[in-house]
């Protein structure tokens, strides 16, 4: 199941928002100015030569411009921005911002959605349909990335006018830390008893069993091998809810941001290998578990972690 973090709304411009007369602006484009030039030349010719056919052309062009203006305006009038959201991403990767639009009663061709800091995407909306326009927003730092203002615009139908509305959804996108591969001292942390006093290197050693193909080599019980007793593998306690606790204080890295990144990588690594893990951060403890929800909880905690002297949020 995909996990998506939907917009956090903070009152100011609640979504869904339907574009209405107050919010819609319209101005001629550069193409529109070229068209106006053609119209002006035609009108001057008509007046100068007193030529009724030229008058007709000039006024037909004026009529077209006016009709195009109305069509462009109606193309956005009544369009609803129903929601905005984004899947969390790792810092440095682009966030895909999904803007959901509901067409309402009419077809809405060539609707362009842009963010302040991101490239735009264009969409043809069908009447009575809802569609999501996805825009890539570059990310650099972990934490909450404000999506910023959203500009819904259209140059439909002739490109002579640009109609637009600006919406500030007050939404933000969650950016996980950038994972950083680094070797960690194995099995940091305790079984998560919550003492907050975890010494390094304590393993929840349970016993040994005869080696089976596939057992990790680092779990080999070297002592018995050295004694010539055969190959045995160490077994660790795998009770549910227990397991390795990834401990902030145990990461041998002085820079807090890199430490966050290393822990992030460790979380992903554990999740991938289906080894349960917990997370101990300054002021917060997440008990060991497994699963995507758990992974998200841990990564979110890392994303929001504010460290003294660090550059995090």
């Amino acid at each position: 199941m995909k996990v998506r973090v939907w917009a956090r709304r903070r009152g100011a411009a609640p979504l869904p928002r339907t574009l209405d007369r107050r919010g819609l602006y319209i101005l001629p484009t550069r193409q529109g100015l070229v068209f106006a030039l053609v119209l002006a030349a035609t009108l001057v010719g008509a007046v100068n030569y007193q030529n009724n056919m030229a008058f007709l052309l000039a006024f037909l062009l004026a009529g077209l411009a006016l009709a195009a203006m109305v069509h462009g305006y109606r193309n956005l009038l009544g369009l609803t921005v129903t929601g905005i959201g984004a899947q969390p991403v790792f810092a440095g990767r682009p966030a895909r911002i999904a803007v959901r639009l509901a067409a309402g009663s009419r077809d809405r061709p060539a609707v362009r959605v842009a963010l302040d800091r991101a490239a735009a995407a264009s969409w043809n909306l069908e009447a009575q349909r809802e569609a999501a326009v996805e825009i890539d927003l570059p990310t650099r730092r972990r934490g909450l990335l404000p999506i910023g203002r959203l500009v819904v615009s259209s140059r439909y139908p002739m490109g002579l006018f640009r109609v637009w509305a600006t919406i500030d959804p007050q939404a933000a996108c969650l950016v996980y830390p950038q994972p950083l591969a680094a070797s960690l001292p194995l099995e940091l942390g305790s079984d998560g008893a919550g003492t907050g006093q975890a010494g390094p290197g304590i393993e929840d050693f349970h016993g040994v069993t005869p080696y089976q193909p596939g057992d990790p080599p680092r779990h080999l019980h070297w002592k018995s091998l050295a004694r010539g007793q055969g190959v045995f593998t160490k077994r660790f306690d795998e009770r549910r809810g227990s397991g390795g606790l990834l401990d902030w204080f145990a990461v041998p890295e002085p820079d807090p941001e890199r430490r966050v990144s290393i822990l992030c990588h460790a979380v992903l690594d554990r999740e991938r290998r289906k080894q349960s893990y917990g997370l101990r951060l300054p002021g917060r403890l997440i008990r060991p578990a497994l699963g995507r929800g758990h992974r998200h909880r841990c990564l979110e905690a890392l994303a929001h972690l504010s460290v003294p002297g660090g550059s995090g949020p």
Partner: peptide, 10 residues
């Protein structure tokens, strides 16, 4: 568009 422009033209 052209049909709508005609009355304006007139």
């Amino acid at each position: 568009l052209t049909l709508q422009a005609l009355p304006i033209m007139a």
